[in-house]
């Protein structure tokens, strides 16, 4: 199997997944509406409470990167649900009976979910700009921030791909990912400064990769903690959030891409 064929197979599968976005526009409407709702809810409901002095403007800036991180992580769960659905419907059997690259179905799926996340990030950024979020750095730094968010979500996609093939029930996947992803994205610096968390929870939050990618995005967008007296976390992960995010993503892909591919070869339709 040549690399060219592998790339072409993955492209064909990704195109197939993206056609679904076109055919079921409601899906796109709702995946973009929920992040907009999140931006507005957090900005105006929590914003005032956490940052009373500045009417919430500072907190809104601080918050946006957190919502971006949470949303792309949730976006990555689509990978699992999508694959589970394909197994259930026998599409995976069809693919497996074709002389195509065995990693292409997964690569195609994870790549199309990146495209999904790009669309969602664009929508959220516009909403963010409307409620007062600003990028206070250079274009390149901001772009790198977005790339880090996408790379991070891409790594999570591979975990979800493995789970989706392991538990081929879209409903179970949706519920299970909710239970895992919610604490993961909340016990972090996404919505509150870490200083407010009690000891053990704070340690977890400091090493939580969601915190790192959020911190990295904040730095790259130039959205610091609005509290001037806040003490920056001394954890290595938050001192070097970009590096930690990248290491984490690479390790996760290195572990879960082979696991998911092996599971794909075994996956049997019900």
């Amino acid at each position: 199997m040549s690399v060219l064929n592998m790339a072409s197979d993955a492209g064909v599968v990704a195109k197939r997944n993206l056609i679904k976005i076109k055919r079921v526009p409601d899906l796109l409407v709702f995946t973009t509406l929920s992040p907009i709702m999140f931006v507005l809810l957090f900005a105006y409901v929590f914003g005032g409470a956490i940052d009373p002095s500045g009417g919430g403007a500072g907190y809104r800036e601080f918050l946006i990167a957190g919502i971006f991180a949470q949303t792309v992580v949730f976006g990555a769960t689509n990978t699992g649900a999508g694959l589970a659905e394909d197994v259930k419907k026998g599409i995976i059997d069809r693919f497996r009976s074709l002389p195509m690259s065995s990693s292409a179905v997964l690569t195609g799926r994870t790549l199309s979910d990146v495209v999904n996340n790009v669309i969602v990030l664009v929508v959220m950024s516009v909403t963010g700009l409307l409620v007062g979020w600003r990028i206070n750095t250079s274009f390149l730094e901001a772009l790198w921030g977005f790339v880090l968010l996408l790379v991070f979500a891409y790594a999570i996609s591979w975990i979800m791909a493995w789970i989706g093939l392991l538990i081929p029930s879209p409903e179970v996947i949706n519920n299970a990912s909710f239970i895992i992803i919610f604490p993961l994205t909340f016990v972090a610096n996404t919505f509150v400064p870490l200083g407010t968390l009690p000891g053990p929870l704070r340690v977890f939050a400091e090493w939580n990769p969601v915190s790192a990618v959020t911190q990295a995005a904040r730095e790259l967008f130039g959205n610091p903690d609005p509290n001037p007296n806040a003490i920056a976390s001394q954890a290595w992960s938050l001192q070097h959030p970009q590096l930690y995010t990248l290491i984490w993503a690479v390790v996760v892909i290195a572990v879960f891409a082979p696991l998911a591919t092996a599971q794909y070869r075994r996956a049997a339709s019900r």
Binding site: S8, D9, V12, V24, I91, F95, L98, P99, M100
Partner: peptide
């Protein structure tokens, strides 16, 4: 095992591509 979101044509064209 056909993809319900794809048209009949898209389904077959995709399979052709995957047969290289």
């Amino acid at each position: 095992a056909v993809d319900e979101y794809l048209t009949g044509y898209e389904n077959l064209e995709m399979i052709g591509r995957l047969y290289h």
